[in-house]
Amino acid sequence: TGRRLVMVDAEPRACALARLNAAQVEEDVEVREGRFDAVLDPAERFALVVADPPWVPSQRVAEFPEDPVWAIDGGIDGLEVARRCVRTASRHLAADGRVLLQLGSVEQVEVLDHTCETSGLEVLAVREAGEGGSRGVLALLGPEAWTGPRPHEG
């Protein structure tokens, strides 16, 4: 597309791997290390924000012993980081931009809907991954004023 890709992660090892991958392509890729709500310039706008925040409720992280706790712990209801993602993305989204957000369940998307509304975004589509949503869900968010056709749900 010719657009610049900005990748953000708070984990140094993830950033190091992202930089190694970015060096293999000819695209304009920048990797920033730190919290996403702290490393973006206030004036930056993006056509697409892809976010995969930790979404496992804190009391359930022991169910996933193979995953580092810092990578999966989403707070009490699993949505602490996702809420921050939505609020931050809404401030950095181009006028007709979209947010693609990975969460654990349709129910989490429904709970997050209030944060979307207060951030000027709405849930445009939700798609379950895996059999019966066994691998999470993807939620497509966009500005409330969007009047174009809605993406297919399912």
Rank of each mutant, 00 (worst) to 15 (best):
T1Y: 15
R3I: 13
R3P: 10
R4K: 15
V6F: 04
M7S: 13
V8I: 14
V8M: 08
D9Q: 11
A10N: 09
A14I: 04
A18T: 07
R19E: 15
L20D: 15
A23K: 08
A23C: 06
Q24N: 12
V25N: 13
V25P: 01
V25R: 13
E27V: 10
E27A: 15
E30G: 09
G34T: 06
R35K: 14
F36K: 00
D37K: 05
L40M: 04
E44W: 07
R45I: 02
R45F: 01
R45A: 03
F46Q: 10
A47I: 01
A47Y: 00
V49C: 06
A51R: 03
D52P: 02
P53T: 10
P53W: 12
P53A: 12
W55L: 06
W55P: 06
Q59K: 11
Q59D: 15
V61G: 07
V61F: 04
A62Y: 10
F64K: 04
F64V: 08
P65C: 09
E66F: 04
D67F: 14
D67C: 15
P68D: 08
W70Q: 15
W70L: 15
A71D: 11
D73E: 05
G75D: 07
L79Q: 04
E80H: 11
V81P: 01
A82G: 11
R83E: 15
R83T: 12
R84S: 09
C85K: 08
V86L: 02
R91E: 10
H92C: 04
L93F: 05
A95C: 11
D96W: 01
G97Y: 10
R98D: 07
R98M: 02
L103R: 04
S105M: 13
E107T: 14
Q108D: 09
Q108S: 14
V111A: 10
L112M: 05
E117T: 09
S119C: 04
L121E: 11
E122M: 12
V123A: 14
V126N: 05
A129D: 09
G130C: 04
E131N: 14
G132P: 08
G132I: 11
G133H: 03
G133D: 08
G136R: 13
L138T: 10
L138K: 06
L140K: 14
L141C: 06
L141P: 02
W146C: 02
P149Y: 12
H152C: 02
E153Y: 02
